[in-house]
Design a binder for these strands. Sequence first.
DNA 1: TATTGTTATACTCTATAACTATA
DNA 2: TATAGTTATAGAGTATAACAATA
Lengths: 153, 153
Amino acid sequence: MRSSVKSPSVAVEQVDTTYLESLIGYNARRAALSVIGKFLEKMAVYDLKPVEFSVMSVITHNPGVTSRQLCASLNILPPNLVGIVQALDARGLIERLPHPHDGRAVGLHTTQQGNELMLKAEVTAAELEMNVGAKLTPNQVQTLVTLLQKIYL
Amino acid sequence: MRSSVKSPSVAVEQVDTTYLESLIGYNARRAALSVIGKFLEKMAVYDLKPVEFSVMSVITHNPGVTSRQLCASLNILPPNLVGIVQALDARGLIERLPHPHDGRAVGLHTTQQGNELMLKAEVTAAELEMNVGAKLTPNQVQTLVTLLQKIYL
DNA sequence: TATTGTTATACTCTATAACTATA
DNA sequence: TATAGTTATAGAGTATAACAATA
C-alpha cells in the first residue's frame, strides 16, 4: 500500500495529456475546432459561418435542392435550418422557387449575388485548405480526408 | 446568356456533397461528431460526457493539477470549468486539496471512487476506439491520429 | 500589478414537441 | 397516414466582464 500512497501536496509542472492524445475522437475534435477557428476568421469578410458556407455550397452545386435534402446531407435538424435559410434569403443570396412536383417542398437556388459570393468564398476556402495543409504534404492531406470519411460515411 | 439560364423547376434526386467532402475542416467536424456521438452512448453508464471524461482523465494522470492548467491543456475557458469541477466534486469523484506553494490555486485529485470509475471508463473508451478503428487498420488509426495532431498541436 | 478561482450573464448551438399544408 | 416546412421553446455549449483572494 505504501508505494501507492499519493502525496497530495505536489505541484504539477507539465501537464501530461498523452492518454487523451491517443484517442481518435479527442484528436478529431481538437483538429476540427482548430480548422473551424481559422475558417471563421477568413470567412468573416463574406459574413459566412461554417454552416452557412456549407448550406450555400450544397445549394450552389445542387440547384433546386430542398430543405429536407439539405438537412439530411449536412446532418442539420429541420427547425435549425429554417433560420439559416431565411437569413440567406433575406441577404439576397438564395431564392426559393416552387418544387416541380411536390407542393409541400420548396426548391432552393442561389441568386446571381449568391453565386458571385460563393465563387470568392470557395477560393478563400481553397487558400485555407492550403494553409492547413502546409503542415501536411498533399499526399498526407488526401490520406487524412480519406481516413476521416471512413469513420463517418 | 441563354446557356447560363437555370431551369428553376428541376428536382434534385441525389445531393452532391463532393465539394464539401474535399475540405479538411468539414471532414474533421463530421468525423468528430460521429465518434463523439458513439462516445456519449457508451459513456452514459458512467454518467460521463466527453468533457467530463477528459477532465477526469487529465486529473487521473496528473494528480494535483490546477483548474488553470486543465483549462490550458483542454482549451476550456475558466468560467466554464467551474461547474464541471464542482459537479465531479459533488459526485465524490475528485477532491480539491491546497496547492503546495500557491495559496490562490487548488490541486485537483481523483478519489478512490473516481479512480475506480476511470479504470472502467478507460476500458470502455479503448473498446470504443477499437470499434471506430474497426473501419481502419491499426496502422491507419496511428496515421490518422498523427496527421490530426499535426493540424492542431 | 498580475493571476487563480469564481459569479453572473449573454450568446450560440442543438434538440423536442407540435402545428399547417400537401402527398 | 406520412412528409415538408415551420414555430416555439428548452437545454447545452461557449463567450465576456468583473470581483475577491493571493502572488
